[in-house]
Design a protein around this nucleic acid. Structure first.
Lengths: 161, 161
DNA sequence: ATGTATGCAAACCATTTGCAATGAC
DNA sequence: GTCATTGCAAATGGTTTGCATACAT
């Protein structure tokens, strides 16, 4: 798609600007990682990205992956999420359909949740002595499947007793 | 304070209810951990809690600490936060002055941020196929000290060039 | 030519696990 | 007495680090 190519160019440019401003080298590894992240849409973890990089024609080490990810986080091209487990999730930040996250505290499933009103209100907040860059809203609770399952279990245990 | 003792009794009761409902044993270790958490007000990490437990007259192992924390999380007496680093922070959840979190992406300092309007709006959201229990809003950005420092650095670098 | 970035392997460290001993029920 | 829970020490696994080599500048 035209749009995807355009996005790719824009984020490459933003990355270049950041690397220049911080006197970092513009290595092919760094751009290959950025490209792969922006070629896909969804959340990913480091292991998935590592595997995907290896399957592509550009192999990088885990060290480089972590190093690059720190740069991408610093220039706000990637967002990092931790949903209570010890695994970190990432997602692209530019041109991303903005959303919040619903996390099931029973099965740990994560769903995206879009709410324009919330987005607007949170962004409009003026905070004294703090300059916001981005934010994450995590809503923890029960997904419909787990709610159903738990209700069933409860009913059964009543019958048994 | 009277109020603190009352809170202590209430959360102990809630914990007892949970342990009974799940046929878990009511060990002194578990109550000692709960008491210590509710004797203090602020955020803490596992290491701090472990040290504090050891300094108190009730020594527990790290294994028990983690085990108990999982129970306290499940019965919503404790909240867990991860602010991007690999360290998890916790705070008491009952009778807690509800707040959001401002995280400086430069120095990683975490501040509490209270906003009644946000709280009300987020809580009022009806989400299809999801039953919310609690939520976390993390706002990332620059704290005033870092904003000032960065401005200064920028100015200096201009002068030098 | 210089020194940053890479790959590799080892180190790190918060958290988890296995197991024998303890103690709640 | 039974079996969940504890403490200990070892294992786990995501992330970081040290160092020699490669390569962007």
């Amino acid at each position: 798609m035209d749009k995807d190519i355009k996005v790719r160019e824009i984020v490459r440019q933003k990355f270049t600007d950041y690397l220049n401003a911080h006197k970092c080298r513009k290595t092919p590894e760094r751009y290959a990682i950025l490209d792969l992240i922006y070629a896909n849409q969804k959340h990913f973890d480091m292991d998935t990205l590592y595997e995907a990089m290896n399957e592509s024609n550009f192999r990088v080490s885990r060290a480089t992956l972590y190093n690059t990810m720190q740069l991408l986080l610093k220039c706000n091209l990637v967002l990092k999420h931790q949903f209570g487990q010890n695994l970190s999730f990432y997602e692209r930040a530019y041109n991303n359909d903005f959303h919040h996250h619903l996390i099931c505290s029973h099965c740990n499933k994560v769903q995206e949740y879009k709410d324009a009103e919330l987005k607007t209100i949170i962004r409009s907040k003026k905070i004294t002595r703090f300059t916001p860059e981005h934010y994450s809203l995590y809503i923890y609770g029960l997904c419909s499947a787990c709610a159903r399952e738990l209700k069933k279990t409860k009913k059964n245990s009543k019958v048994i007793k």
